[in-house]
């Protein structure tokens, strides 16, 4: 039995738990806690250690999706989670420009952990004031060649599309390395 891992990261409340929940075959093993501090009270629960989802590929292969905790004080988990990952997804709440700088910082940090392919998902595109994916690409200074795709984390098809795009990028990188 072989297991593979994709990490889903992004700022606080960008939709990581929701994203993993949409495609996982098990209920996301989420270590969510109710939020007590006023400052972070834009929703009821936050992930304190990690989210954990699973997709069984076949008898011999399982894909795990790990979501990072959103709050800064759990950053020590990041590097541990990134160990051995196949690639990662940076989820951005497209409606909250106040989180873009943080998203950029997270992206850089993960890129430095491991030179694996990654993708940026411009989440919450169903909401009226979502910034378009193309604009986020510029704003987050995403390297050319890295995809920034629109996403609605509650929508399974949309989440599938993000994961597929990441996997296509992984194949492309493999092709380049073989040349």
């Amino acid at each position: 039995m072989q297991t593979l891992k994709i990490v889903v990261t992004g700022p606080f409340a960008s939709g990581k738990t929701e994203f993993i929940q949409s495609v996982s075959e098990i209920d996301v093993v989420s270590t969510d806690r109710r939020i007590s501090s006023q400052a972070e009270r834009i929703k009821d629960a936050t992930t304190v250690a990690m989210d954990f989802g699973r997709i069984t590929i076949d008898e011999e292969l399982i894909l795990y999706l790990f979501g990072t905790p959103g709050q800064r004080r759990f950053n020590f988990m990041w590097e541990i989670l990134s160990e051995g990952m196949l690639g990662f997804v940076v989820l951005v709440d497209s409606t909250r420009p106040e989180t873009f700088r943080e998203a950029q910082r997270i992206l850089e940090t993960f890129r430095n952990y491991s030179p694996v392919p990654y993708i940026v998902a411009a989440n919450k595109q169903d909401l009226g004031d979502a910034w378009p994916a193309d604009d986020l690409k510029i704003v987050l200074k995403v390297e050319s060649g890295i995809k920034v795709v629109p996403c609605v984390a509650q929508n399974r098809e949309s989440v599938k599309q993000v994961l597929l795009e990441l996997l296509y990028s992984i194949l492309e990188v493999m092709d380049q390395q073989e040349e």
Binding site: L4, D58, E83, L86, P115, L164
Partner: peptide, 22 residues
């Protein structure tokens, strides 16, 4: 220690096929 896992193209294709049919 954060290294890229050593995977073959075939594995990635299996992931893609499975996720497509989810």
């Amino acid at each position: 220690k954060a290294r890229r896992p050593d995977v073959k193209r075939g594995l990635i294709h299996r992931l893609i096929d499975r996720i497509r049919e989810l």
